[in-house]
């Protein structure tokens, strides 16, 4: 399962110009981001070492690291299974999630992806094509305000006290009882 965008589509094959375009776009440098999950069985103090192993693969391929985040423990939304070396399956409900944003030629990206996925401590990895600028909002994310909500001024609510009605005093329970009795007597 891969969500990596493979570059421009719709290049018509056959013509020389198209072939040149395909070879030139094939090696162009792009910004990528790899997100990875490290198995929770690894002790917390050894997680930076595993993160460095992922970073080493990327740097060794000739990439320039732009930004990264060291893995932090995350409760997974569902159980992820991984086949271990003995052939059995390990089930994981927690994992360390980290990511690295880097710049690399598109010809080397597939080898980097496969190398990261093959690391025994990596539970899952996702490679995406992205932009250089920071896209991660984190805690800066603005709160969702219902856009259809417009606060109504108290004066516009029907029945609310307007300036000329402020002197009206609310009726007491006794007064209300008396007025109801009068209405009953009058036969309304």
């Amino acid at each position: 399962m891969s969500f990596l965008s493979k570059g421009p589509k719709g290049i018509s094959g056959g013509s020389q110009a198209a072939k040149i375009l395909m070879t030139t776009t094939h090696n162009e440098v792009s910004v990528y981001e790899i997100g990875y999950l490290i198995v929770s069985a690894i002790p917390e103090e050894k997680v930076p070492e595993e993160a460095d192993a992922v970073k080493k693969i990327i740097v060794d391929a000739g990439a320039t690291v732009i930004t990264d985040e060291t893995p932090h423990r995350e409760q997974l939304a569902y159980t992820i299974s991984k086949k271990n070396l003995s052939g059995g399956y390990e089930r994981h409900d927690n994992a360390y999630f980290g990511w690295i944003k880097f710049e690399l030629g598109s010809d080397k990206i597939e080898t980097v992806k496969k190398a990261v996925e093959l690391l025994p401590s990596v539970l899952r990895a996702l490679l995406v094509s992205t932009v250089r600028e920071d896209t991660y909002l984190g805690k800066r994310a603005p709160a969702l305000v219902p856009v259809s909500f417009v606060p109504i001024a108290p004066a516009t609510i029907s029945g609310a006290l307007t300036d000329d009605r402020k002197d009206i005093v609310p009726a007491t329970v006794e007064e209300m009882d008396k007025s109801i009795d009068n209405m009953v007597k009058e036969g309304i």
Binding site: G35, W99, T135, A141, P142, L144, V147, V150
Partner: peptide, 26 residues
């Protein structure tokens, strides 16, 4: 009343998969 886009309103140009708190709103 016409609703306005949350992302256009807050000038968010790219939606990141790591922003789970934002994604959960939708």
């Amino acid at each position: 009343m016409k609703k306005q886009c949350y992302f256009s309103q807050h000038n968010i140009k790219h939606i990141d998969y790591k922003d789970t708190e934002v994604l959960k709103k939708f």
